[in-house]
Design a protein around this nucleic acid. Structure first.
Lengths: 224, 224
DNA sequence: GTACGAATACTCCTTGACGAGTAATCCAGG
DNA sequence: CCTGGATTACTCGTCAAGGAGTATTCGTAC
């Protein structure tokens, strides 16, 4: 119920920006977002969409304007944004831009559990990942070039640029990590190998000292 | 119900790796994960934990071993991993390592909606973000150094290293983007400015050509 | 004109995340 | 000894996400 509780789903923000352009019915919102390829950066599906629109109406950020009916199809309610909705949108978007939030990445989880895999399997996985990343990078570089050639201003491709930057950084890291595992340069490799050597399967991760309160402070939401 | 449906929650994977070390009761799993600071890379809370353990048992990846009771406390069921669980764990973890999956980042969403904010507010937000990122980077560099000084092998800090790499890349990108907005070098800036100039608030994003099927192919799960 | 597939415009129902709440126990001080 | 707070170990209800399913209409080919 507090203001930030509805800030959990970015789809709601995207919906608000659509209504900022003009009043629409929910399905038109979906079309608009799909046409602009926003579904590549924002999770979108119909189940979520209608729920989100309802929630926005309940919080008075949008209001129903009229319900039209074409033929015997279900009626479509057209919504428009309210002043409160306008403020909320600007506020929320501004917050998202200015403060990084902790994201839980799958690969982050995988790395933190990596010792649970035998070193050679881990290495093989990393090398495979590097290959896949190379392909993806090439693919999206192509898409960006095509979009530019098609006249799309860079302003509307920022999110793709950003994700490409992250991908390139990840590729570099994966490569260097793979190298350090192969060369045995990685601190802790010796223990790691010995756990999977024939004979000793005991006490996997147990040896590793618990970090306790040396761990970095818990900054899920850094101070705005 | 299919094999991949339970692969949605990485917490389940973390739980499996705990049981790989030794049989435990659910709460001990939580303690173990918290002690090792895994909650920084994997979303963890009690509500989810007990649900996950139940699901794992239902799928026969773990099995109840015994239930003990100390005093009149609620009884604690001790679980152990099964052979199927062992295989599932290795498989899942291997998959996470070797194939990048599409993640929906908040900042990605924010960038894709950036034109809905006046240029000067967007710029201010980006500059603020850069500052925050600098601080975070320094913080975690410190934490990494402290952990190393404390004798923690690098093998157990990979996830933090990785996130640091991403943060640095993001900082670079945010800085360069801010520069291009300030200098007006960004393609599309002129339109963007004019929408918020006194007078014309019409048709926000409408001018931007819908990308249609020029958009990069939909690779949520790249071929393994 | 009608048959069939594709697209439109939703609805509903099952999972599962989340975290506040709770009961029991331990420990420290008076 | 006993009282109050911290810690342990879990439970429960809410609430939202997701996606399969449904009904209608449009297009097009025979």
């Amino acid at each position: 119920m507090p203001a930030h509780s509805r800030r959990s789903n970015p789809l709601a923000l995207a919906v608000l920006t659509c209504f900022l352009e003009k009043p629409m019915h929910p399905y038109e919102v979906a079309q608009t977002l799909r046409n602009r390829a926003k579904h590549q950066s924002i999770r979108l599906n119909y189940g979520a969409l209608y729920g989100v629109v309802e929630a926005l109406e309940k919080h008075q950020l949008i209001r129903a304007r009229e319900t039209v009916r074409a033929g015997r199809r279900p009626e479509r309610t057209i919504y428009e944004i309210t002043d409160a909705g306008l403020r909320e949108m600007a506020d929320w978007l501004s917050e998202l831009v200015s403060g990084p939030v902790k994201e839980y990445l799958q690969f982050e989880a995988a790395l933190s559990l990596l010792p649970a895999l035998p070193p050679d399997e881990a290495l093989a996985g990393l090398l495979h990942r590097a290959k896949t990343l190379e392909i993806e990078i090439a693919l999206f570089d192509g898409a960006l070039a095509a979009a530019r050639a098609h006249g799309l201003p860079r302003l509307f491709a920022l999110e793709t640029e950003y994700v490409q930057v992250l991908r390139r950084a990840e590729l570099d890291y994966v490569r260097s990590l793979a190298k350090d595992i192969e060369s045995g340069e990685l601190t802790g490799m010796d223990d790691w190998r010995s756990w999977y050597a024939p004979g000793g399967e005991r006490a996997e991760l147990e040896v590793h000292p618990d970090t306790g309160d040396d761990a970095p402070p818990d900054r899920r939401q850094p101070p705005s």
